[in-house]
Nucleic acid binder design. Sequence first.
DNA 1: ATCATAGTGTAGCAAGTGCTACACAAATTC
DNA 2: GAATTTGTGTAGCACTTGCTACACTATGAT
Lengths: 181, 181
Amino acid sequence: MSEIKAKREKWLAAMAAHVVEHGLTTASLRPLAKAAGTSDRMLIYHFGDKDGVIGALLETLAMGFTQGLDAALPEARFESPGALLHSVVGVMRSPMAAGYARVWLDIVAASARGELAYGRTGGLIIAGFTEWVLKRLPEGEDEDTARALLTVLEGTLVMDAVGHSDAADAAIAWFSGDRRQ
Amino acid sequence: MSEIKAKREKWLAAMAAHVVEHGLTTASLRPLAKAAGTSDRMLIYHFGDKDGVIGALLETLAMGFTQGLDAALPEARFESPGALLHSVVGVMRSPMAAGYARVWLDIVAASARGELAYGRTGGLIIAGFTEWVLKRLPEGEDEDTARALLTVLEGTLVMDAVGHSDAADAAIAWFSGDRRQ
DNA sequence: ATCATAGTGTAGCAAGTGCTACACAAATTC
DNA sequence: GAATTTGTGTAGCACTTGCTACACTATGAT
């Protein structure tokens, strides 16, 4: 019983790693199966169809994402929103996170395309991320500050992706320097 | 000679429309050809290979994009960066622009994936967009304001895509209300 | 021990992918 | 007018896609 669940977890971890390196929306069953050390036949058997595989994979990725964030920046209040943004951007720009950023933008694009599973997961990730930020903002900052911070962060990911980190840096500096009092 | 160029323009316009509706990175030759009223055989003949088709298509899309922006918001200085951001977001959120937003996020995701043609086009679009913004900011605002504005705008696109327009709104309000003096 | 169920390997199907070979017509060059 | 280039339709190749049919074994319940 539970050995099967364990096997599926192992598969999912291996497939998640594969996806982080090779992209999510371009992934097809046979490469995924190969990465997991099994066959497409088995993936379909255990997850129903490809959507089932992707759904489970999205869940795994979302968990890995927030866990990675927690590991990189343990819970502690920063002295200012700008300082927190700086730190988070630092993490997101590290080579370790590059794969996750790629996958995240894949999820965003698929959401925009109207693919429901991706959209739901994307929304959940942002919701969790908002809480995560809120717990690290200085006492007294409200949710809107967290939302604004996250929006600037997402803009940063986009700008970085198209080679305009300069634009992102301007927004970050601006967010950090010109705070409401 | 020039009739052939005209034909290619017609093809590209039709394919661009198809792509705006059905997605860019998921597009394959036969559907593209069908949208253009020709055959995959002809697309390959005239553009060399699929990359040639996509490259020409990216160029067409970038042009259409900036032209659409110009048409929606003719050149005129806004009274504040916040007012400009509001207007641009209004345009980007209109149904007319939804397709372009989808394609844009496709380009961003492909750029992040390392696909060079997409990355180059994405960078060019942002560069052009920066100039566009700069010409509409109040006299005296510098390029960094344009960059920050655009980064917030990109963040807005992402947040809208995953159903968190609330977060985008917070960032926009924050950008508009708490300006440097 | 029997028998059903869960799990797995092999093989393959129908559809779609980018691209090409080949034959042929139209236009251009000499 | 002959020769060559340019453009186009038909057909198809080799491959990948998601998924399935079928035969088989391991495992569990009775």
